[in-house]
Amino acid sequence: MADLQTAAPLGEVSEFSADGGGAVLQVRPDFAMVQVFAKTGKAGELAQKLDIVSDPGKAGDTSSFAALPLSPGQWMLIADNANANTFGQEITEQISGLGYVSEQSDARICIRVSGPNARDLMARGCRLDLHPSVTAKGFCAQTQMAQVGVLIHQVSDEPAYDLYVYAGFARSFWHWLTETAAQF
């Protein structure tokens, strides 16, 4: 049997800067991510327990993680520089009896889109209205870009966006994103 080796979805790639200086892409390492599902009728109690919000499109920030509402009673919790194993265990213990936890840290990659033309780059593939009169820091949504499912989290008003993309689509999405960003 072949020896199994660990490999990052994008290999050694970690950054892309457009020649014109308009857009910068960074692959963010070392985040822990778990999906949380509330038991029937327990969504409110669970949100209270974790001190997170349930409103669609609004990411809640606690001291240790961001909570992105995905659908009624479901959130993605994302912690920077956290250990994937211990983070999942901590959340599991905190919401014991109220919901379930699914560890997702290696299921997706995170690409941070920033730079003066970050919004223009997003507009090339994102169907959502990201004009500053509509979205601001803290906005989040699940949608599709270049036919790939993406979880978007706006992390700055500048703006900057974190894009969480399935690991299996990472290379395809990165190819599209860098080709599109090159014009900026």
Binding site: P56, G57, S71, P72, A141, Q142, T143
Partner: peptide
């Protein structure tokens, strides 16, 4: 009802 108005391509 959850996400708001979205394009048909997402459905």
């Amino acid at each position: 009802p959850w996400c708001g108005v979205r394009d048909e391509a997402e459905f």
